[in-house]
Design a protein around this nucleic acid. Structure first.
Lengths: 143, 143
DNA sequence: ATATAACAGTTAGAATTCTAACTGTCAATA
DNA sequence: TATTGACAGTTAGAATTCTAACTGTTATAT
């Protein structure tokens, strides 16, 4: 009876490393009462609110469906991190603005994400990190 | 006003590639009426059922909580892919067995997972693939 | 031998994300 | 200008996974 075992080392390694990254970030962010997804969203709004961020921009940037963004922003608004305002020139849209409570956290978030990022290549030399980056870019582009 | 943009290229690339892998697998598996998680679970049960797989083994293998495994297996049992039997020597446990309906699909699943796996390194040379693997292993071990 | 702790699994309820159907607004066209 | 289609966002309901509290079984220790 041929019972050939399934071997998918690349899939497994990438999934495991991805989980590690997510867990490291969430462990540290949970002290601030938010998760990684919410933290990145506040950061993006902070960086782009002068250009006028609408919900669709967030859906595109974070690869989430419109309904998901609605639900996330309703939560962030209820907790007082953001406000949503319908602009006069287009009543279909809602522009997103960070409130003080949200802005105060952004620096802290960014510090955490930067530290997690450093941790990924922590065990690699400069040269190895460079190669790793190049290979990741190539893999993403060709698969 | 210092508004330094957050740069996390490694985190982003790994997340994106991971999503790609998951989506490719799910797109193909959905034709069979199951998702990637369920497919891998049936495969693991198939390969190990002679050793006697219990739910805890699945929780460890797939990094899921016991409650999650309970819920997944209840679904697979209801659909007729598996059965769960309390062994005489330890009434706390439930051993998992694949039924014919499940076994019939395992070969198909494995083919899909193997093809997705190949796709990851599809754009890399033999030498690059080898280096990529080594770097992934190192990253996972040191982060 | 009895009490306590560890173990395996289940349930209830929450969080996150999805799809599909919907409302209202704006743009294109004929 | 009236219709039609595209667009932005929302809602309802489903799927997946989690935590916390629970039941019952087995192992350990006093």
């Amino acid at each position: 009876m041929s019972k050939e075992t399934l071997h998918t080392p690349y899939s497994d390694l990438i999934r495991d490393i991805g989980m590690n990254i997510k867990n490291m970030a969430n462990d540290r962010l949970s002290e601030l009462g938010l998760n990684a997804q919410q933290g990145q969203m506040l950061g993006f709004i902070f960086e782009n609110q002068e250009k006028g961020v609408i919900q669709k921009d967030l859906a595109d940037r974070f690869n989430r469906k419109g309904a998901t963004i609605t639900s996330m922003l309703q939560g962030l608004e209820k907790k007082g991190y953001i406000k949503r305002i319908i602009p006069e020139d287009n009543e279909r849209q809602k522009k997103i603005y960070l409130l003080k409570k949200g802005a105060d956290l952004v620096e802290e978030f960014n510090k955490i994400f930067t530290e997690v990022e450093k941790n990924i290549t922590h065990g690699l030399s400069e040269a190895e990190s460079k190669i790793f980056m190049e290979l990741l870019i190539k893999v993403k582009a060709t698969m």
